[in-house]
Design a protein around this nucleic acid. Structure first.
Lengths: 153, 153
DNA sequence: GGTGATTCAAACAAAACTCTTTGAGATAAA
DNA sequence: TTTATCTCAAAGAGTTTTGTTTGAATCACC
């Protein structure tokens, strides 16, 4: 079995991920490792959640390590957020490396799933690097402002 | 403060990372958040460890998601490991996308710090993708085989 | 030598997470 | 309908992690 040292995955989680990756169904995996399909499902879900956490962690650190950071509150319009990027850039003598249309799609991509009606439904942390790059971290939900029920499908 | 939702960093850890990133010393951060410099050091270390864990997690998942995976035991010579890559590729009808010298430096880069005397000091998980790419995950220490004291500087 | 910045180990309580079981549903195909 | 596959919530016991304190140590620099 693959090593899990200094990883946020447990041995059990890697065990399940490996077998699932090889094409076995949850029931087959359950038999192989001696437990129930329901348990395999739970472990697999925990593993997936951990992988998502790892991705978000690196994105957050990447954003925080920019020389300027600021937070955009949930409910902000996309256009306003873009203005905030440029004005913070001006204030800190950073020339943003994107023109307005570029920045729009650059920001829209990672935020698409947290947006609706041209508004962002989450607090967003934005970082500006020395050389004008823009980094984004979609943060926690803020239903009070956005007026959306995140849990609904 | 930046959101830490669905992240493996705690609020405290992000708090410290943010202030440290802004250039404050550990003592200054300690005063700001009302604790000791020694504590700030500990929290910062935990945060760094978590970031490393996140990186290793993604590398492991990347390796595991390859269509063929196998493990190279600690103590293996670099040359033997490279032969293993090609022979597994042959077995599974995967044409490795690197020639021998390329593969050598490609594998040496991520494994350099775990190597000595042309041997690897750790178990290494290797994944081969459908299109011949090679992925590497340096695993747990195995001092019994490698005969090295990892803790020594 | 002294000083500022940082690191480290040990210990502890509180908090978070893990795997598991149980029992119930959801979905889609035969 | 039956079957296979997968999901979900709640609850429990066990393990791990976290933040913290204390006291000592390291390192670079004046």
């Amino acid at each position: 079995m693959a090593a899990v040292d200094s990883t946020i995955l447990t041995e059990r989680q890697v065990e399940v991920l490996e077998l699932r990756e090889q094409g076995y169904t949850q029931q087959e995996v359950a038999e192989k490792i001696g437990t129930t399909d329901s348990n395999v499902s739970a472990v697999e879900r925990a593993a997936t959640k951990n992988v998502e956490k790892a991705k978000r962690t690196l994105r957050l650190v990447d954003t925080l390590s920019a020389s300027v950071t600021f937070e955009v509150p949930a409910g902000t319009h996309f256009g306003d957020m873009i203005e905030m990027v440029y004005s913070h850039g001006d204030t800190c003598d950073i020339k943003i490396a994107y023109c307005r249309p570029e920045l729009y799609s650059y920001l829209y991509e990672p935020l698409e799933k947290y947006s609706a009606g041209n508004k962002i439904r989450r607090n967003v942390e934005i970082g500006l690097t020395h050389d004008g790059d823009v980094r984004v971290f979609p943060g926690e939900v803020n239903d009070a402002i956005s007026g959306f029920d995140e849990t609904r499908q």
